[in-house]
Amino acid sequence: MDAVTYPQNAVGEAIAAHCVPLQIDNSQASAEPLLQKYRHIWTPDIRILEAGGNELYRWNGYLPPFEFAPQLLVAVAHAHLRLKQFDAAGEIYEDVLKRFPTSLVAPEAFYFLGVSRYRKTHEANELLRNWHELEKTFPSSEWTVKQNF
């Protein structure tokens, strides 16, 4: 990550816009309380925390720069969504779909864009229209499976 992903401008810009970056070396004894607190088990271990320390999103595993940037933005959008900041969440999901429409995380952005709009407006037809578009655009995505209820 330090050698390939983090040096890329798109990644650095996404982090700087939304986050305070914190790196912890899991081999250091001083890190143990934090590793226990967050039940750390595997690296790369990426979390989005609110300022109080609550975890709002997480993932494991390496991502190349042009997958990491949209994944980070979706993570930040989800953090806003969980804090019921629906406009902020929706704007970031829309940005991901505009700038990274073929990224691995794009279907998730599509799914939760509908959720963020619905939670703000309670317009069920809007949600169903969004999810119908998700199904057409990403027919084999797990998020298409998840929108069937």
Partner: peptide, 30 residues
């Protein structure tokens, strides 16, 4: 270039002050 912090307390304090989230990256040096 990313200006990484290495102190949890400093990162959460700065996030609170700046109105941002903390991006926590736990890594292994090996």
């Amino acid at each position: 270039m990313i200006d990484w912090l290495h102190s949890y307390d400093e990162a959460t304090a700065r996030a609170r002050n700046d109105g941002k989230f903390v991006l926590l990256d736990v890594f292994s040096p090996t």
